[in-house]
């Protein structure tokens, strides 16, 4: 064996550093940042993001993109309104005309805007009201005092009640009160999501409340409301964000379903995909293109949000992925 100790100390340390497998190359990256970088590398997230951004761009720029006025009747000499003859896709109307002779493509583009608005606003309603109830409930239950538990109990029974009423019934009641409109649609769809968000946030907060880092904060002498705001809440938001993204997809589908049932906006200048589907139903046999295009659009958009939501779920909780 050759004599050790011949190399200088510095050389030894350098060599070691060179060959060491450092376990912490990453410095000072928060969990949110880590999740975001995982998201950027996920194929599922990329596909979802592409679909969603295409949808958003179309929705925002709809008036510029639409080749025709969505309300203008584009009959030409070969077609007569009193004879139910439908115009399918053709050069100047790539998706054809609808039953009233309006350009389907233009209506779809403008409809994207309505659908996006319904989806986003409904989700925001559901998320904010739900998170408010869930957050208050979770915080109250976490306080552990008699009053807190009572508040939690009352709120949760209310949520259970909401959960037991079908969304359709809520929607019809809202529509009865406010009349069918886009607002009705958004409130109805949003209301149906409230219990989901409330239960999710409360459960998540209760679980976090039992964690050691919360106990540690209390032991440090931090005031309870501050503990909730700085520790319990931030650690409970992940699932809510994921659910929010997934809800965007269901909200668009549900809004379509409700307008299909005639609870949507009666305003013909503001078409909406669900409403278009409802119109198409009467002509399904003779003009399938009228149903096909909105349906496909709804499916693809919902898929985009779902993919994004699932990818977020994985990114926020890497343990799920194997």
């Amino acid at each position: 064996m050759n004599l050790p100790g011949t190399a200088t100390k510095a050389a030894k340390i350098d060599r070691l550093a060179e060959l060491s497998v450092s376990s912490s190359d990453v410095r000072g990256r928060s969990l949110w940042l880590e999740a975001f970088s995982r998201l950027r590398r996920s194929p599922m997230a990329i596909v979802g993001a592409v679909i969603v951004s295409a949808f958003v761009i179309v929705a925002v720029a709809a008036p510029l993109l639409a080749p025709h006025d969505p309300t203008a009747q584009l009959w030409r000499g070969d077609v007569f309104p009193n004879r139910s003859i439908f115009v399918g896709p053709r050069a100047e109307n790539p998706l054809g005309l609808d039953h009233a002779g309006r350009d389907l493509l233009s209506r779809m583009l403008v409809g994207a805007r309505q659908s996006l608005m319904v989806g986003v606003v409904a989700t925001l309603i559901g998320l904010s009201v739900g998170a408010l109830i869930g957050g208050v409930s979770g915080a109250a239950a976490g306080m552990g005092r008699r009053l807190g538990r009572a508040v939690d109990s009352v709120l949760m029974r209310f949520v259970d009640m909401l959960l037991s009423i079908p969304a359709l019934l809520i929607a019809i009641s809202v529509a009865a009160l406010l009349g069918p409109s886009l607002t009705t649609l958004m409130i109805a769809v949003g209301a149906a999501q409230v219990p989901i968000f409330a239960r999710l946030l409360r459960g998540s907060m209760l679980a976090q409340s039992r964690s050691d880092f919360v106990t540690a904060s209390i032991a440090l002498g931090v005031r309870r409301p501050k503990v909730v705001v700085s520790h319990v809440l931030p650690n409970s938001l992940g699932p809510v964000l994921v659910q929010g993204t997934l809800t965007l997809a269901t909200a668009i589908i549900e809004a379509a379903a409700l307008s299909y049932l005639g609870l949507g906006s009666p305003d013909i200048s503001r078409p909406e995909w669900g409403g278009m589907l409802a119109d198409a139903q009467r002509f399904l046999g003779s003009a399938p293109h009228m149903a096909l295009f909105p349906a496909v659009a709804i499916i693809i958009t919902a898929l985009g949000f779902t993919l994004l939501g699932e990818a977020m779920r994985e990114a926020l909780d890497p343990k799920l992925k194997k």
């Binding site: 969990l31 880092f213 106990t215 540690a216 700085s230």
Partner: peptide, 14 residues
């Protein structure tokens, strides 16, 4: 003060 068993669970990950 207190020192906990689980060194991961006792520090707020965020």
């Amino acid at each position: 003060q207190m020192i906990f068993q689980d060194p991961m669970g006792s520090l707020d990950p965020r």
